[in-house]
């Protein structure tokens, strides 16, 4: 095993180009477990801790450009307003110690369906900024990023530099089921974002299919139902039947398995419950802000 310690992003890209099998390590919260338990013996470890850019974020007009290694703790503390769904998701990641080290880049690189960030990114809308020495930068839409169980759209010579997440234009929520009240891997997870600007709702489901997925049929149904009932304008409570059908469609979007963490049947059920609850919470919040702005006006 060789330990590569690039001092800059350019050096990191050069090293990855020279050694495409090199395994990037930043927070180490996935890679080191595999090494400690003898599940993996990479030829090269590519340490990204000295690449300072990866720890920075910029809040732009439309999006937040979030460095791949910005620890979850920083996201929770600093980006709660801009990225509320991701901040909530960050708070559910493992333990404080892990949140201090791990970042979204690791979740994306590992592409485990259980990664906590995925449903929030899918719901908010995001693009993954990847780069190679040979071909430069490209932006991969989050919807195209997950290609299989623990597989992603990254080329062997590419590294994840940042993720561009759409700034929240409405309420967002995130729920995760685990069999413990802290420090637990998701049995399944659900992210939901209201986008009043485009009058759309986006979702993200974790740990209930081979990859993180959106519940597209559920989104389409809800978008149509909200439009039809004039809900965005009248701010009425979403009828229980609409909420229920949305929840059922979210359950139907799952393609889960039975494993030691839970049954497929439970995952489908729980995603439905979380879909209904997160829709209620976000919609209540939307109605609240509407009322507040009307009151102010």
């Amino acid at each position: 095993m060789d330990f590569l310690r690039p001092a800059s992003w350019e050096e990191a890209l050069a090293a990855k180009a020279e050694h495409p099998t090199a395994v990037p390590i930043a927070g180490g919260t996935d890679v080191m477990v595999e090494i400690n338990f003898d599940h993996r013996r990479p030829e090269y470890l590519l340490d990204l801790n000295r690449v300072g850019d990866l720890y920075e974020w910029e809040v732009g007009e439309e999006t937040v450009r979030l460095g791949a290694s910005v620890p979850y703790t920083r996201i929770m503390e600093n980006l709660r307003a801009e990225l509320p769904g991701l901040a909530l998701a960050s708070h559910t990641v493992a333990s404080p110690q892990i949140r201090n080290r791990g970042g979204v880049g690791g979740n994306l690189g590992t592409a485990s369906p259980a990664g906590d960030a995925h449903p929030a990114l899918l719901a908010a809308g995001a693009e993954v900024e990847v780069e190679s020495a040979a071909r430069g930068t490209r932006l991969i839409p989050i919807d195209d990023f997950y290609t299989g169980v623990k597989r992603n759209a990254l080329q062997p010579d590419e590294l994840i530099r940042a993720v561009h997440v759409a700034k929240a234009d409405g309420p967002q929520q995130y729920s995760k089921v685990g069999t413990r009240n802290a420090m637990v891997i998701a049995v399944c997870a659900f992210g939901l974002a209201l986008h009043p600007g485009t009058r759309t709702v986006r979702t993200g489901i974790g740990s209930a299919a081979p990859t993180p997925v959106r519940a597209r049929a559920a989104e389409e149904f809800l978008n149509a139902a909200l439009e039809e009932g004039g809900f965005w304008d009248n701010g009425k409570i979403i009828t229980p039947s609409v909420a229920k059908q949305f929840a059922d469609l979210c359950s139907a979007a799952c393609n889960p398995i039975d494993d030691v963490r839970g049954t497929a049947s439970y995952r489908r059920h729980a995603v439905g419950v979380m879909a209904r609850r997160t829709l209620t919470w976000t919609w209540e919040s939307y109605r609240g802000t509407r009322r507040a702005s009307e009151g102010a006006a």
Binding site: G28, M32, V33, N36, F37, S95, I98, N100, R101
Partner: peptide, 29 residues
Amino acid sequence: CEQGECGSCTVRLDGVPVCSCLVAAGQAE
């Protein structure tokens, strides 16, 4: 546990509490 699931190895790394079992030695340079 050596898998970041127990916190027994917690140290401050540049002031931040982390699981030292999940920090590669070379990253502490």
